[in-house]
Computed example of a mutant assay.
Amino acid sequence: MPTKLTIAIPTHNRAATVRETLASIDALALPAEIDADCLVIDNASIDATAAAVDNFARDARLPVRRVFEPRLGSSFARNRAVDETQSELIFFIDDDAIAERDWAAKLFAAMRSRNLDAACGMVLPRWTSEPPPWLGPSLWVKLAVHDRQAIASAPVSSAETLDNYFSANVGFKRSAFERFGKFREDLGVVGGNPISGEDTELFARIIARGGAMGFAPDAIVHHMIPRERMTRAYLRRKSFAYGVGSAFAGGRNHNRLDKLVKNSIRMLAAMSRGDSERAIYHELECANFFGYWRGRLMKS
């Protein structure tokens, strides 16, 4: 009997890019043992998202369904997807990402062969314009995309880390949500709300409670990086927001005073030798530190 899979796309006001994502999902090469459908969570969109999805669904090869989630926020949208389907597997992809043709098959194979509760695949950058010279591979993690070359050249086990787990490309067994819970709704991006990291918190929770989570490097999506994300100001905001989110998430944290001191020194050293990429990296680590302590104050 085929395994039932739902591919979920949470989206907010991205009518243009979600069409591309849907087209890549509809073009997937799926093995016979997978019975797949596609679920779009329209997260309080006020643009042409509804029409774009409904028009695409009429001629799609895979069944495509749209549901409207009025509570704005990434966690609300993801949890609505879990509630809307009874499929054995739920794969999430972002509304500005393009799946390679064998993405779902590779993610499915990795989860089955390793008996994983959840698995994250490779997220490669899809630059909309030439990135600035300082935006080198060591900073890509701040954009939630992978450096494929670095991962390929390192020991396989080194990829099995929270730093490599991104929700733009993730698959779950339904039983994982039943065992470990869903995305925390007090975390997650909501407009300008600086509390992010709901995905990392869930991944860490699965691991901490004895779940099996892994990295599937052959399951690849290409994530759009627009020009406005290729700025130091954007990266500072994201790093600060992730710090705030980590404070709200609780648990062990490395944001002690020595982190600020070390990264400040390393930032100055990198600046002195003209290494702007590393200088900005350590600047962002400092922003994360300040975000964390801002979050602690917000909680108190």
Results as ranks from 00 to 15, higher is better:
Val123Tyr: 04
Trp103Gln: 09
Thr85Pro: 01
Ala48Leu: 08
Arg114Gly: 02
Arg80Gly: 02
Leu107Ser: 00
Arg58Trp: 00
Met111Phe: 08
Ser75His: 03
Leu124Pro: 01
Ala110Ile: 14
Met111Asn: 10
Leu116Phe: 06
Asp102Ala: 14
Thr49Pro: 00
Val67Gln: 12
Met122Arg: 15
Glu100Gln: 15
Ile93Met: 06
Gln86Asp: 14
Val82Ala: 08
Asp95Glu: 06
Arg101Gln: 13
Ser87Ala: 13
Ser87Cys: 05
Cys120Ser: 15
Ala52Gln: 09
Cys120Leu: 01
Ala52Tyr: 05
Phe68Cys: 08
Leu62Gly: 08
Asp47Tyr: 09
Ala109Leu: 00
Phe108Arg: 08
Glu88Asp: 14
Asp94Gly: 14
Glu69Ser: 12
Leu89Cys: 01
Phe91Tyr: 06
Val82Gly: 04
Arg61Glu: 09
Phe76Cys: 08
Ile98Met: 15
Val53Gly: 00
Asp83Ala: 15
Asp102Lys: 11
Ala81Ser: 12
Ser74Trp: 15
Ala77Pro: 03
Asp47Trp: 05
Asp83Arg: 14
Ala99Leu: 04
Pro63Thr: 14
Asp95Lys: 06
Ile90His: 10
Ile46Asn: 15
Ser75Leu: 09
Ser74Ile: 09
Asn43Lys: 09
Ala52Lys: 05
Val53Trp: 09
Ala81Pro: 07
Ala77Cys: 02
Leu116Arg: 02
Phe91Ala: 07
Arg61Gln: 10
Ala60Gly: 09
Arg58Phe: 00
Arg58Ile: 03
Leu107Asp: 03
Ala109His: 04
Ala110Lys: 15
Asn79Gly: 10
Arg101Ser: 14
Asn115Phe: 05
Ser87Asp: 10
Leu62Asn: 11
Asn79Cys: 13
Ala118Lys: 06
Arg80Gln: 14
Met111His: 10
Cys120Asp: 06
Leu116Tyr: 08
Asn55Tyr: 03
Ala105Tyr: 04
Phe76Trp: 14
Phe76Leu: 01
Ser74Tyr: 12
Asp102Tyr: 10
Ala60Trp: 06
Ser113Lys: 12
Glu69Asp: 11
Ala50Ile: 11
Glu88Lys: 14
Phe56Lys: 08
Phe76Thr: 03
Thr49Arg: 02
Ala50Met: 10
Leu124Gln: 15
Ala110Leu: 15
Arg71Glu: 13
Thr85Gly: 04
Ala104Pro: 06
Ser87Pro: 04
Glu84Tyr: 12
Val67Ala: 06
Ile98Asn: 06
Glu84Phe: 01
Ser113Asp: 14
Arg78His: 11
Ala118Glu: 01
